[in-house]
Simulated assay, not measured.
Amino acid sequence: MFALFAVLFAVLFASQVAAAGLEVAEVRSSLASSSITTDGVVEAVRQTVIAAQVSGAITDLPAKAGDNIQAGQVLTRLDGRAANQQARASQAQVEAARASLQVASKDYERQKQLFSRQYISQAQLDRAEAQFKSATADANSLIAQAGAVQTQSGFYNLTAPYSGRIADVYVSQGDMVTPGKALMAVFDPSALRVTTTLPEAQLARLAHDQSITVEIPALPTAQRLIKVDKFIVLPVTDASTHTVQLRLALPSVSGLAPGMFARLQFPAKALGKDDNVRLYVPAKAVIRRAELYAVYVVNPQGKPMLRQIKPGPVSGSEQEVLAGVSAGEKVLVNPLSAAQSR
């Protein structure tokens, strides 16, 4: 295809035309920015969805979205009257079992004294001991059941797991909820981080001994730029996108909130001497036909030679060239004008 492309432009330039008198420009080289820029999002290190563990109707909902909360503060109350009745019934059964255990214990002690004086047989003592052990097991079982019922009755009052803020409330007072039903979301605003992703190929270029600049455009100008010294690379690569997730802990800054957009600038290091060098030619020097790009390069004999290039992005009046030319080479600035001046 390139051969055909060259033939089409052969009519514009004779292979022996000297470059003298034609406007030429030198391929400019420039050091690329020694940084990697990516976008991220602010999120809370601790963020929790409060969900119901039992069924019931919401009888009290003192918490509202945006409220500040303290650890242990009641956020939601469910109708737990039936559970409270069960707890009282279980406690009564425990008291009855303890009374029976006390009677069995005293009877067992008397039987041991009588046996020591040989007033009763070994069989009678064994029966007393068995009754004592049975009463002990019954009491322990009822105590455990009462503890479970008491614990379950506590599920009807949902409390804050830590001090923080309520992000959202998903229910209203009077709603019927079931186990697993999400009621609200809370987070700790004192510990925030930025999460971003990078292609796995760029990990090797990250400089770990320099500060990272985090820009939060939503903040006031004086607080917008934040310097972070460390970041964590999660040890798992996404198999579909071939990217890795990075996390950066943020210092305490007023106005920060989960969900904010962040722009991150990571210092980068060059893996080779030419890794940060970029080449540019005048944009009007580039000839395009279909998917082919080329420029006329002036050879050492002063003659223009058509050469295919791999273009990069356009920057102002210049075209970045990823492959095809070298720094210092000269290209014809306007091939069509040069053809007309033959």
Rank of each mutant, 00 (worst) to 15 (best):
A99L: 13
S100P: 07
S100I: 14
L101I: 11
V103K: 12
A104I: 15
K106T: 15
K106D: 15
R110S: 10
Q111R: 14
Q111Y: 15
Q111I: 11
K112P: 09
L114V: 13
S116L: 10
S116M: 09
R117P: 01
R117F: 09
Q118A: 03
Y119G: 02
I120T: 06
S121G: 03
S121F: 02
S121N: 00
Q124E: 09
D126E: 09
R127A: 14
R127D: 11
A128K: 06
E129W: 08
E129I: 06
E129K: 05
A130Q: 05
Q131K: 10
F132W: 15
F132I: 07
S134C: 00
S134G: 06
A137H: 06
A137N: 06
S141V: 13
L142W: 14
I143V: 08
I143F: 10
A144F: 15
Q145S: 07
A146Y: 07
G147E: 13
G147S: 14
V149T: 15
V149C: 11
Q150K: 15
T151F: 14
Q152P: 08
S153I: 04
G154R: 07
N157Q: 08
L158S: 00
A160L: 03
G164A: 03
V171S: 03
S172E: 11
Q173M: 05
D175I: 12
P179S: 00
K181L: 11
K181Q: 13
L183N: 05
A185G: 10
V186R: 04
F187E: 05
P189N: 10
S190E: 03
R193H: 06
R193Q: 09
V194L: 05
T197N: 05
T197Y: 05
L198Y: 04
P199Q: 01
E200N: 05
A201K: 09
L203G: 06
A204C: 08
H208T: 15
D209F: 07
Q210R: 06
Q210G: 00
S211Y: 04
S211I: 12
I212P: 01
T213R: 03
V214W: 07
V214G: 01
I216D: 02
I216R: 00
P217G: 02
P217C: 03
P217D: 04
A218P: 10
Q223K: 14
L225V: 14
I226C: 01
K230P: 01
K230G: 00
F231S: 00
V233M: 03
L234Q: 03
T237D: 02
T237N: 06
A239F: 08
T241F: 07
T241P: 05
